[in-house]
Design a protein around this nucleic acid. Structure first.
Lengths: 103, 103
DNA sequence: GCAACACATAAGCATGTACTTATGTGTTGC
DNA sequence: GCAACACATAAGTACATGCTTATGTGTTGC
């Protein structure tokens, strides 16, 4: 189950910070460390978890590895969220209509 | 940060099963145990985690406690997801429009 | 080739978490 | 009142997880 990996990945605060950084555009592993007080191996491990969850994808560029948000993970969360549309407040109704089409 | 509690709560497979059961309507703690091979205290602890994350809310009814999905948690996830709308595929564009209004 | 660099993997350790059994709290009906 | 019930809390334990240091792999430029 991919959901399991996704929620586990996002349960860690450091990984959420990394993911939010990537929301602004692709970055390599070293750039992602800026600001976060974390060792290089720790970042590498976090990125591995995010990648296996389908939340980020990588692209080798010389000796750098660029990471970016993977839409696959985003869609998986949206699809999961769609199961609970009965409990969304009215201002989220348009979202419900859209996701109904995705079934 | 409420996000932290939400993703931690959903990282556990048993809690996700409980939450999905509640998607079908409110249930008490004993009813939620049906099908899941889990002790009564374990269920109680899981429900406590889900409640503190804002994902479920409870309502005492005699000696039973009814649990139901709390829209607050659903909205929190939707809001979080909105940060990544740049990475949503086109079929989720309507969702983006809606959540833009929520800012 | 080889030194410097960017990143990944291995191994060990400290802390967090999900479970258990035992017990406590509040409600119902006799 | 009190026995039965529904649920919560406490305490202890096994395992998962996120970190560290050490080392491995692949790339660049001289």
């Amino acid at each position: 189950m991919i959901e399991a990996d996704i929620f586990k990945a996002l349960a860690d605060p450091t990984r959420r910070k990394v993911f939010e950084k990537l929301a602004g555009g692709s970055l390599n592993a070293s750039a992602l460390r800026d600001g976060l007080e974390i060792s290089q191996p720790a970042m590498s491990q976090h990125l591995s978890v995010l990648r296996e969850a389908g939340l980020v994808r990588e692209q080798r560029q010389g000796r750098f590895v660029n990471y970016e948000v993977d839409p696959e993970g985003i869609v998986a969360i949206g699809t999961w969220l769609a199961r609970y549309r009965a409990y969304w407040p009215k201002r989220m109704d348009a979202l419900a209509d859209l996701l109904k089409e995705m079934d």
